[in-house]
Every structure is written in C-alpha cells, then in structure tokens.
Design a protein around this nucleic acid. Structure first.
Lengths: 339, 339
DNA sequence: ATTAGCACTCCTGCGGCTAGAGTGCTAACT
DNA sequence: AGTTAGCACTCTAGCCGCAGGAGTGCTAAT
C-alpha cells in the first residue's frame, strides 16, 4: 500500500461520496490533478480491487469502494475538516439554553445532528438503571388522581399518574412518598427494582397498598425502552441508494426497533473517546448492511452514559460526520455538567 | 343515480381499494355476481364517468374512482362493518391500564390506531391554552438545580428544570411556588400567559427573580407545538401508490409539520360526533392530495379537546377506518374520564 | 515503470413491435 | 327500450434488438 495507491483510493472515495456513481480511471485522472495517466490509474485500481478495497458493479463500469475500502478510508485516509466556530456556536446556543430535563437535551441533540449532517440521527439517553433514586414528589391532578414525579440523581425524571387509594388521604400519600424517598434515596434504581421483585420485601406490608403501588410502579419503570431518540429519519430519502422503497422500509424499520439500535450502538461504548464507525456488513444487523453508522459517546459526571449517532448510506460524508459528532458530543457533555 | 349505478360504483371502489389496479367491466361482471353483462356495465361506467365519479387513467384501462367518487362512496355507499368485540377489548386493555398522564394515552392511541388500520396515525392532544392551572411542585435534582412540575386541571403535565437562584434557599423556592400556585390556581393558562406578558404585572417585583422565572417559564410553555403525535408512519411505504420516494417524502414531510397537521385536522372539530373524512384535493394542503384523512374527535369532561386521525392513500379502507376511529375515540374519551 | 492505443465488455437508452386488456359502438335480441 | 354479443379500435407494458458510450485490460512502445 504505497502512497500513490492511498492517494488514488482516497480521491476515488472522495469523488464517489459526492457523486454516488462508479468512478472510472479517466474521471480520476482528469478531474483531480494526480499527475499520472488514466492507464496507470487503471493498473493501480486493478491492484486495489485485488486487495479488496474496490469493487466493480460490472465489467465496464468504474470502481466503487468496498466495505474494506471505506474502512481504510476512515481509519487512514480521510482528512478531518476544521469545525467552523459558527457551527460550534450554533450548537452551544441550542444546548446552553436554560437548564432543562435531560430528555430535552437528548431531543435537541438528535435534531441538531440530523440538521447538521443531513442524515438521520439517533441519540441514546443515559440508562435509568445506573442512576440512583433522587426525590419523589406527589401532586394532586384532581380529586381521584395523583401524579407521582420521580427523579434520579442524574436528572432523569419520570411522571406517572396513579389513582388515589380510596382509604387514604392526600396527606397520607405525601407522607408515604417522603418516607419512601427517605428510605431509598441514593439507592441505584436497578437495585431498587431487584429488591422490589424480591418476595420477602413485600411481606412487611406495613404501609398499606400504596407502598406496593409505589414499588410496583418503580419496577414498571421502563429502564431500557425509551432510551432511543430518532430525528431526521426522512433525510434518508434524499440519497439515491434509497430510491427503492423496500430499502427505506428496512432501514427505518430497523431504527424504530429501539432495543436493536441500542444493542448496535452499545458497540461504541468501550472506545471511550474515539468516535466509532460501523460500515456496512460490519454491523450484526443485516437490515442496515447498506448503511454506515457513526457513533460518539457523551458523558455525565465523568462517566460515559450514552451515544450520539448518525446513520446514512455507506457512501457517507465520514469526515464531516465524525468531526461534527465529536464536537456535538463534547458540547452535550458540557451542557450536562449541571446534572 | 339509480340503484344499479350505485351498486356498480360501490363494487368498483370496493375492488379498487384492495387491488389498487384500474377496474374493468369484465372483472366487475365476472368476479362479482352482479347479474348483468359487461357491456351493460360498460354503458353504466361511461355514465358514471360523465357524472364525475370515475376516471380513466388512459383510454384502454379500466376505471378508477375520482375524488368525487370516493366522496359519494363514503357518504352513501360504504357498509360499515361491525367492530369485533375482541378488537374493542384490545383497545380497552391498552387504554384501561393504570391511570397515566394524558400524554401517555395519546401515544398509546396513536400506536394502537396505526396498528389496527395499517395506516399512519396522528393524534392531537388537548390544547394547553384551554386548561387551567392546577398545581405546582418543586423538587431538587441536585444542589444547583430544581425541577418544576406544573399540572393543569385537565391532567396535562410539564416538567422543567431550572437553576436554583443563588440568593435563595430550596425552602424559599418551595414556598414561592406554593404562593404562585395559590394565587393563580384555576386560571386558564392562556389568561395566565397574557397576564405575564403584560408589563404592569412585572412591576411588582415583590418575589425576587424567581417569581419572574416562574412567569417566564409559564409563558415559554409550548402550548401549540407538541400537540401532535405521529405513529406508524412507515405503514405508508406498504402501499403501491407510494412506491415513489418523492411522494413518500412529501407526505411524511407534511406530517412532520405539526402546525400544518393541526390546522388540517382542525376542520374535523365542528362536526362533533361525526367522523370526518378529507379526500384528496379536498385538503387545503397539496402535499397530501394523493391521500385521504379520516378524523374522529375525543372528549375530556364533555368537551371535544382533540382528534384521532388516520392518513393513507385515497384508496383507503374507509369502512374499516371509520368504524375503528369511531370506536377508539369513544374508548379514549372513556379512558380519560378520570381526568 | 509509465503510457498510448486498441479491442472488448457491458450497461443504458431508444425505437419498434406485439400481446393483452379494455373500451365504445353497432346491431341483434328480448 | 333496455340489454347483450360482437367487433374494431386504442393504449400500455413488456420484449427484442440495436447503437452509443463508458470503462476496462492488455499489449507494445517509450
């Protein structure tokens, strides 16, 4: 893999990323001043194909990058652009807004990223399981209905309306919730749920049915659903590789399966700082074998808690996406400093 | 418009709804035992075309219903099926779940409807403006951050995290929120917001900056955004009329414009009980001229507050959709009885 | 090692053609 | 007078073959 081969491969991919058409030796020689003739390029391209970096849709078409070609491009060739300060400012403007619930930041980020990259974006919120119980508040929606609001120490919030038990007054419930919060504050939600499911715990029976309601509700807290926010999914319709409705259906259908998405992006977690790229068949899910996924992680209190991610055709603007995600995830971590 | 013409028109539309292909006289005569020859049907179809109920894609194709044809079908011809008790039960099972926030019901309903009809579904939540201020609670997310929870009397809930003002203690904030709630409880949110925007009100300045924060936050409450929930949008990809990505983009793009959708469905409000149908070019939005929209309303405390709706190709299963929506909206109203 | 030249391959697009479906009209029938 | 059989006509979808073009691989010259 000498310098010239790298140069050719890089240029070819650059061109294919914007043109979406197989690239021929002529195009490469003419359009970009490589200083070598098309014949030489042809030879090199034949080599590159043998090495597995390029593919030919058919004999007399130009070359197209293979998964492996993209991989090499992403790992070695692509040149990351500088992120414009106006872009950074835009992100900061949005995320530096008055403090909000974490869920709000997640949504904004997804929206922002899909706007900035013109690909669909997926953002995974911090898991509830790892968080600890913060506080509980009760309010009365109307005569027969209560609203319970539970917060974790990490700023995640969940509301749930419940009927007011007939044999209890509102004040009793408030007191009960206080007791509950006092007893369990600081306990990891996961542990709390485990304990709830332990039959011994319910033996006590000391606090009426509502105590159980509270416990039952906690255990019902969807901790793994609902973590995934999708934005800009329609962006995918813009790319010619998805002119076929069947493909669109497969990809968007996949993105709606939250557990699958979460599992996919889980792969990005170990690589702490690095932005993680999944190209085509590197994915365990065949529904997105025509796609690439770029993922960055963000942090809350120094721990990685979630992912910001972009999905698009394999012919993706990797350089732009990678730098954008790096920047956004950093800004998101910063914006969550308060939490 | 004699009985036979009606019969023919009805059968033709029934067939077209499932086949999606222009229907010829032969098909009609053979497949359905109409007891008349194809020649007679041809004559009748020519009449029906002259009357504006049918159209011909081209000379030697079968006939296709026109917007007017569908309209007549919906108003006069279609036979509503009985809703199976198992279907009703399924809906009740979902909606009769332990009491939740209204937003939860809206989501569930949208999901349910798109599942049951296999079309995208849109549900509009009750407007915040019409509701009255219920209660406010404050909780501490962490040392520097508060969570405000505001509920309306109609069960709508909104959370907002805010920074704790430096010169106030948590207890002071709690007290302040109580005061605020006490002073304004029962006031329509709209009025509250108007009052907030009135410069005179802020003259008082009696309760520090946080009072203003509270007011400012109230005025920031998105009352008209966020009312629209979309579910099952991918369903549209299943129908051959949307095999073209451009069309999909137009329609789904439209559905993401919440204000537009709200405005469209607003047309359904006056017709209280009735299910409302918009066919093709009857819509003021040309993005959905290839579509039909069926809308039912639901109630909260005896008032119509929102819409449950389905969008699909003009060749829609009107009978099924109309009865389904009627049933679901009724069940939704019932499920919201507690609010 | 590079490059010009050339024969070869394969896709794409176009025109023409045919088969099939469906119509409208006419004439016969009840 | 309404209905129906028959028939000529129309229009499309699909297929074939063909030419043009793009791109390749190979060979021979530089």
């Amino acid at each position: 893999m000498d310098a010239r081969k790298r140069r050719i491969l890089g240029t070819l991919i650059d061109d294919y990323i914007v043109s979406a058409e197989p690239v021929g030796s002529r195009t490469l020689a003419k359009k970009y001043g490589l200083g070598i003739s098309s014949a030489t390029i042809r030879n090199e391209m034949a080599d590159l194909e043998e090495l597995g970096f390029l593919e030919q849709p058919h004999t007399s078409a130009g070359r197209v990058p293979s998964d492996r070609g993209y991989r090499y491009y992403v790992d070695e060739l692509m040149q990351r652009p500088q992120v414009g300060s106006d872009t950074v400012n835009r992100v900061r403007m949005v995320l530096a807004a008055p403090v909000r619930e974490i869920a709000w930041f997640i949504h904004q980020t997804a929206q922002l990223v899909s706007d900035m990259t013109a690909y669909p974006s997926v953002v995974v919120a911090p898991p509830v399981n790892d968080a600890r119980l913060g506080d509980i508040r009760v309010m009365q929606l109307n005569s027969g209905t209560l609203l319970l609001v539970v917060a974790t120490d990490s700023g995640l919030v969940e509301n749930r309306a419940v009927p007011l038990p007939e044999d209890m007054s509102f004040e009793q419930v408030v007191w009960l919730a206080q007791e509950f919060a006092r007893e369990f504050r600081g306990m990891p939600i996961k542990e709390l749920k485990d304990r709830i499911l332990d039959p011994l715990a319910s033996d006590e029976e000391r606090y009426h049915g509502l105590w159980e309601s509270l416990l039952g509700w906690m255990s019902d807290w969807r901790t793994n659903d609902d973590r995934v926010t999708l934005a800009g999914s329609l962006n995918i319709l813009k790319y010619p590789e998805f002119r076929d409705v069947g493909k669109v259906e497969r990809v968007l259908g996949f993105l709606e399966r939250e557990q699958a998405v979460e599992q996919l992006l889980y792969a990005a977690l170990p690589q702490s700082e690095q932005v993680h790229v999944i190209i085509g068949q590197e994915s365990p899910f065949d529904a997105i074998w025509d796609c690439s996924v770029v993922t960055a992680t963000y942090q809350l209190r120094g721990h990685i808690v979630g992912q910001v991610s972009v999905i698009g055709p394999k012919r993706m603007q990797y350089a732009h996406v990678v730098t954008t995600l790096e920047m956004v995830s950093e800004e998101l971590s910063r914006a969550l400093k308060w939490a």
